[in-house]
């Protein structure tokens, strides 16, 4: 059990007196794509933010990449290897141009300028988006923004991907494109989604968050 990339040990978290996670256990192993379903407001996004240290558990412990994570310094170490895709791409893309946004993460990881330029080119090419490099992020369509947001996460060369509603608000073509991209990636993933058909295509294992507990669902 200790080789899990992400592990929750009896994690409890709440806002005020509302408990969102009640002594939850969770495991995510290499090669897995774990689908996480649950009603609106059931705490799926909160669960993701606990993994990357945007929130801290009130009880229990979060293990990421084999080590317990408690302080901001602990979590800083994992912000490269654990990539998080936000629900609203406008939250994620803040740089003026696509190339700069993709470069933001690698720069923060201390890569050299030459490295960063190579990573940007490679990542955009991987998603077939070379010609987007100099486009202005706020002028992109919703689908394009989502793909660029995926590029910004992949540019950090993560081992684990946390995806918050990756297909929400996309048209059919963009949704298909996202599914293809995700299926082609080797990383372990935790995918939050309401889109059952999407999870059927992508998830290797499924769980559901209900009244603070994680329930195991039958494999698709």
């Amino acid at each position: 059990m200790n080789d899990a990339l992400v592990r929750f040990d009896q994690v409890t978290f709440g806002y005020g007196d509302r408990t969102v996670l009640d002594a939850c256990d969770l495991n995510l192993h290499a090669g897995e794509r774990l689908g996480l379903a649950g009603a609106n407001g059931s705490g799926k996004t909160t669960l993701l933010s606990l993994i990357v240290g945007l929130h801290r558990p009130q009880h229990g412990q979060v293990f990421v990449l084999g080590r317990p994570r408690q302080s901001e310094a602990d979590f800083r170490e994992i912000r490269g290897p654990v990539g998080m895709l936000f629900q609203d791409s406008d939250d994620q893309l803040f740089s003026p141009t696509v190339a700069e946004d993709v470069a933001f993460g690698p720069f923060n990881l201390g890569r050299s300028r030459a490295d960063v330029e190579a990573i940007v080119a490679r990542t955009l090419a991987q998603l077939g988006m070379q010609e987007y490099a100099d486009r202005v992020t706020y002028k992109l369509s919703g689908g394009e923004k989502r793909l660029v947001a995926i590029a910004t996460v992949l540019a950090m060369e993560p081992e684990v991907l946390l995806l918050d509603e990756p297909t929400a608000g996309l048209d059919e073509a963009a949704r298909q494109r996202v599914i293809e991209i995700l299926l082609g990636l080797p990383q372990a993933m935790l995918i939050v989604s309401h889109d059952r058909d999407f999870l059927d295509h992508t998830a290797t294992r499924r769980t559901r968050l209900e009244r603070g507990r994680l329930l195991t669902l039958p494999a698709p």
């Binding site: 945007l54 912000r79 936000f86 939250d91 994620q92 803040f94 993460g105 990881l109 910004t152 950090m156």
Partner: peptide, 10 residues
């Protein structure tokens, strides 16, 4: 949320 997303990218 923007700051959170930025922190996630180091």
């Amino acid at each position: 949320r923007v700051v959170a997303a930025m922190k996630c990218r180091g």
